[in-house]
């Protein structure tokens, strides 16, 4: 049996196929303007790669911003629950999940089953999200994925005071003009983001182990800063951090299918 999860975010979309025990295939794309289009393309891709069709999917759960309008999904679950579920499946000792996405960052507390116990999300502000890093990368004429490596090469973090995406960019331009190195600025930017996220973590309460999911988890500069600011190690995930939401959705698809079958059985008896 194949259980599918599809996660359409603000910047990327992912699909995961789960066979009840392991991940069969996964795929990630940059989002299209229309969430339905993104969901279809990413699902088409993952099915094609694994030689399967829509008919092979037993149950599909969607998550992310377009989750309610995906016609091939039977059910939708919030990305908050999905990230918790996916992370604990990938690393069972995890109890706190930091998901830094394109426009939302969230801290999710989970139990040993991956069920969400509490969560907190960022205020209505882009600071502390992937957008913040994108803006800085643009100022450097770099791709956002190169910012992490740059930060790791920094030795003395530049003091960035503004947490506002727009004004931090302004600070960065002034620093460049004053001769600060890109590396140290990138290091400083990672620290600012980490401090912002840490205040969210503190609201929920830090329970170990802690892991990072979402696109920004791939930014090793931010991960280093997070470990430094929180003074705890970050649990590495054995799966691509960006697919954790879609993985959680596939796991929910599996659980929901089993529950529905159980209900049917009970009704038949």
């Amino acid at each position: 049996m194949i259980f599918a999860g599809v996660d359409v975010g603000s910047m990327s979309a992912e699909a995961v196929l789960f066979d009840g025990e392991k991940i069969r295939a996964h795929s990630t794309i940059v989002v299209k303007p229309n969430p339905l289009q993104s969901a279809t393309i990413v699902m088409d891709t993952v099915l094609e790669e694994s030689g399967l069709t829509y008919d092979d999917i037993t149950y599909c759960v969607s998550t992310g911003y377009g989750r309610e309008r995906i016609p091939f999904a039977q059910h939708d679950v919030s990305e908050i629950s999905c990230h918790g579920k996916g992370a604990v499946w990938a690393a069972p000792t995890v109890r706190t999940v930091i998901d830094i996405g394109g426009q939302d960052s969230k801290v999710i507390r989970v139990d040993e089953n991956g069920d969400m116990q509490d969560f907190v999300m960022n205020d209505k502000c882009a600071a502390g999200t992937g957008r913040f890093l994108e803006g800085i990368a643009r100022t450097f004429h770099l791709h956002v994925s190169d910012l992490g490596q740059l930060a790791l090469e920094g030795t003395d973090p530049a003091p960035i005071n503004s947490l506002c995406t727009v004004f931090a960019n302004f600070d960065v331009m002034c620093m460049l003009a004053e001769g600060q190195t890109k590396e140290n600025i990138a290091f400083g930017v990672s620290n600012v983001l980490a401090r912002r996220v840490f205040s969210l973590v503190s609201r929920v309460g830090l329970v170990q182990d802690i892991c990072v999911t979402g696109g920004v988890a791939k930014n090793q500069g931010v991960v280093r800063s997070l470990a430094h600011v929180m003074e705890v190690p970050i649990q590495k995930l054995p799966v691509d951090s960006q697919i954790v939401g879609a993985l959680g959705a596939a796991l929910f698809a599996c659980r929901r299918y089993e529950r529905l079958r159980m209900e049917e059985k009970n009704l038949a008896n």
Partner: peptide
């Protein structure tokens, strides 16, 4: 806890949070 504008136009943002709360 939800942060919102007086005119709640960011329906998606609010729905995600409330839905997650229902799931919790």
């Amino acid at each position: 806890t939800l942060e919102r504008e007086y005119q709640p136009k960011d329906v998606g943002r609010l729905r995600t949070r409330v839905q997650a709360f229902m799931e919790r």
